[in-house]
Design a protein around this nucleic acid. Structure first.
Lengths: 217, 217
DNA sequence: CCGGAAATGGGTGTCAGCACCCATGGGCGA
DNA sequence: TCGCCCATGGGTGCTGACACCCATTTCCGG
């Protein structure tokens, strides 16, 4: 017996943090030991507090929950990770799996499922909401049907970074200066994003990012 | 003595509703008597339950919190209204005041201020977060300085039509074909819109249209 | 150890967005 | 009636977005 699971909670809205904390702390086997307001703070607090489980919102300033999840699952392999998001979006769901998340919970059903998802993660079992399971099965069947000839490449970490900046209204030149890379490289990332997502221009990229919850309008 | 204030809570995320409910119900003078997941449901429940106070999120399906606030302040004059939102946006803030809201609270600071805002509303006093107060004062000073000499030309009907189409992602060429006018005229309307709204490009026009509720994201 | 993917960056060309210039005809209020 | 604003549209030119071409380095997994 080692006491309740120690949880790090990261969301940029204090109100959501407070609500989730009240829900989790009312369970005897779960306790929130730290709260972060952005992805960078989440990483710092995870290192300082060594929690058992991190609950990460996707849409956060500085680093998104997915970026933080990649970093945390790489540097702290024992840490369980739950992604908590507003949006039912398959692209981000698959990315969350690749980023090392143990579970993916929608905020719209989190009041019912979140506690169960935490317990599943602590047992090192995956937890997915029903829609995600459906998408996963469909994707599995798709791959089986195609014989994995096309692994349909996903958005990379760097591409997500560029996507966020484009959607925030920055020009290619500004992004190049922010990331210390050439305009041509920004052009290439943008082109890859447009091709992978099947979109036409940066305006559609912006809509996509808003719908996906990467940024706020 | 009439017992605790009866509150209607409207937000499309069950998780946020649950958090807010836990916060408010722990105060002896506040009690949540109904929860709505969208603006239309909020109006129906307000009529059925006759609460003292309605807390409305802006971003909701069917009817936004602002639309619901307009309807409620018109048909139920005794009802106090608090707008609760993610966005620190002056446009929304002024719209909320015009829609009859008694208070405007940001989700990012709601864990601290929400209870106080509810009590202020029940005393029929306004409650605004500090940034909103600053914006209100600046706007007042602006108007005083101009002495309303310039009615600051409004968007014309034709310009709004073009704005909508631009925000929906149509190119100037497409809009010209849709409206049976020349590309150059579309160019001119766009230029006038950019100048009147103080924006830079069609991407910012799109954000503006989304925020103004002209189109759906 | 080799092949592929990710990240980097250069060149070239087309086109749309946007700024600035200009003019004309119609409607409406002072 | 006169002037103003609106809607219309033409010309010119710059710049950024985007497509398609190319190459190099690094790193990781089979």
């Amino acid at each position: 017996m080692t006491g309740p699971a120690r949880i790090l909670l990261a969301d940029d809205h204090a109100l959501v943090r407070r609500g989730v904390r009240l829900i989790l702390d009312s369970e005897p086997d779960l306790t929130v030991v730290a709260e972060a307001g952005d992805g960078a703070e989440a990483i710092a607090l995870a290192r300082a507090e060594q929690p058992d489980l991190a609950i990460l919102d996707i849409a956060m300033p500085r680093l998104t929950g997915l970026q933080a999840a990649r970093e945390l699952s790489r540097t702290m392999p024992g840490l369980r990770i739950l992604i908590l998001t507003m949006y039912d979006n398959e692209q981000f769901f698959f990315e969350a799996l690749r980023a090392g998340a143990n579970g993916y919970v929608l905020k719209s059903v989190a009041d019912r499922d979140l506690v169960e998802a935490c317990r599943a993660a602590m047992r090192d079992e995956p937890f997915l909401y029903p829609g995600a399971v459906t998408a996963l099965i469909r994707d599995y069947l798709d791959r089986a049907a195609r014989g994995q000839d096309q692994p349909e490449r996903a958005i990379t970490a760097r591409e997500e970074e560029v996507l966020k900046l484009i959607a925030e209204g920055h020009s290619a030149r500004e992004i190049a200066q922010l990331l210390f890379i050439s305009i041509k490289t920004v052009d290439r990332h943008r082109a890859n994003l447009l091709q992978k997502l099947g979109l036409r221009d940066r305006l559609e990229l912006t809509r996509y990012a808003i719908r996906a919850g990467l940024i706020e309008p």
